[in-house]
Amino acid sequence: MKLDKGFADTKKTEVPAVASRAGANRRLAWLLALVAAGFLGFGFALVPLYNTFCHLTGFNGATGTAAAALTPVDRTRWVTVEFTGMVMPGLPWKFRPAQRRVRVHPGETAIARYYATNLGDRTFDGRAIMSVSPEVAATHFEKIECFCFHQEALEPGQTREFSVEFFVTPGLPKYVTTMTLSYAFFPSVERGDDRSQPRS
């Protein structure tokens, strides 16, 4: 009977001793273990890959940074940029945008301001994480100077003005007429670890 998809027939034959296969088995096993270790490395590599992905797609509202606006200004249309902000638990600050929204032409540099007040009884360090929505707009939002580049400190009772200098690239698709810029002020976590560079 011919073996056909699981239909088997058997007869005795002389076969090489089992021991001769042990070496080959061990070699293949180590190779597979190496592959598994490679995938473990890939798991960790997903962290930087993911950040790159965010910047390419605007996922999480990740925005770009530029030295200056070198693009021509598109005076044929307006874009509304709205501002909002929040303070995360653990930072006794009050934080709010100075203006609700600005209207800009794509390519035109603008400055927006926020105010922060420390309500605590000691100096607190904070770090602002920035996020722009919708994602398609985030890829066209470039910061020239931003308080979110640095850790910021406020003394007890102190109020400071923070500003962000930005422009929207003329490549912004025409159907986007409004975008929202949000900052989340976290208590600073600087501990000398190299991952503390903020994404934005």
Binding site: A36, A37, F39, L40, F42, G43, F44, L46, V47, Y50, C54, N60, M88, R127, I129, A184, F186, P187, V189, R191, D193, R195, S196, Q197, P198, R199
Partner: peptide, 29 residues
């Protein structure tokens, strides 16, 4: 499976060693 193990290890260091793989405060997500 190694990706889950890698994630689990990151979660452990986030919980106990002050990393911020999964927290926006330190540049994670």
């Amino acid at each position: 499976f190694p990706a889950l193990i890698a994630g689990g290890l990151m979660l452990l260091t986030d919980r106990h060693f002050g990393t911020h793989f999964f927290s926006a405060a330190g540049g994670g997500d």
